[in-house]
Amino acid sequence: MTVADFRREIQALTGELAGRPLDAALDAWLNAHHGPGSATYAALKAACEQGVAEGWLCEREGGGLRYGRVFDAAEDLAGFSVDVVDMCDIAGPHHVHPAGEIDLVMPQEGDDARFDGRPAGWLVCPPGSAHRPTVSQGRALVLYLLPGGRIEFTRRGAAPKDPA
């Protein structure tokens, strides 16, 4: 798996997401069609694990997290950016999703790791949502798709900045 191969894997998925609202219906659809047990989930999980092992994913480290933006938002990715974070029993920095966020949760050590309380699979956060991303009960890789690459880091409890 090369970075170019990984981009093609992501393109196949984001092509199916283009123009869809980031809501509970998309969350259910992703888990039904591309969730654990699917070829898409297996391919993305294997690619992320290989990328981390080879050092082209999660190349940065800080605050107990390994992370990195793999691809900036691009037309061939239906306008999504792609980030991958490696987390183990930790909460990341509070942030707002001005245009929403789609997360793929891939537990690494046992099947019990949770991301914001969710097990392996997809989590769709609607536009305007915010959280302090938290992995509990083990280690997980989390792939983030951000429309337009938009994310706003905040101080926990502080009012989010106006995205305009």
Rank of each mutant, 00 (worst) to 15 (best):
R7V: 02
R8T: 15
R8Q: 15
I10L: 10
I10M: 14
I10A: 06
I10N: 02
Q11I: 08
Q11T: 04
A12V: 12
L13Q: 05
L13W: 02
L13S: 01
T14H: 09
T14P: 00
T14K: 03
G15K: 04
E16K: 15
E16S: 14
E16T: 14
E16P: 10
E16N: 13
L17N: 00
L17S: 01
L17E: 00
A18H: 08
A18E: 14
G19N: 04
G19W: 09
G19C: 06
R20C: 07
R20N: 06
P21D: 10
L22F: 00
L22S: 01
D23L: 05
A24L: 14
A25W: 02
A25H: 09
A25S: 13
L26F: 00
A28C: 12
L30G: 03
L30Q: 08
N31Q: 02
A32L: 09
A32K: 06
H33M: 14
H33W: 13
H34S: 11
H34D: 03
G35Y: 00
P36D: 07
S38I: 06
S38Y: 07
S38K: 06
A39L: 12
T40L: 07
T40V: 15
Y41R: 02
Y41C: 01
A42P: 02
A42M: 10
A42H: 12
A43H: 03
A43N: 12
L44P: 03
L44D: 00
K45A: 15
K45F: 12
A46P: 04
A46C: 09
C48G: 01
E49S: 14
Q50F: 08
V52D: 08
V52Q: 09
A53N: 14
E54S: 12
E54Q: 15
E54F: 08
E54A: 15
E54N: 13
G55N: 07
G55T: 12
L57T: 01
L57Y: 02
L57I: 09
L57V: 03
C58G: 13
C58A: 09
E59P: 07
E61C: 11
E61R: 11
G62V: 07
G63Y: 10
G64V: 00
L65Q: 10
Y67E: 04
G68W: 05
R69T: 15
R69P: 01
V70W: 01
V70L: 11
D72A: 15
D72I: 08
D72H: 10
A73G: 04
A74F: 04
A74W: 02
D76E: 15
D76C: 10
D76H: 08
F80L: 06
F80I: 03
S81W: 05
V82Q: 00
V82L: 11
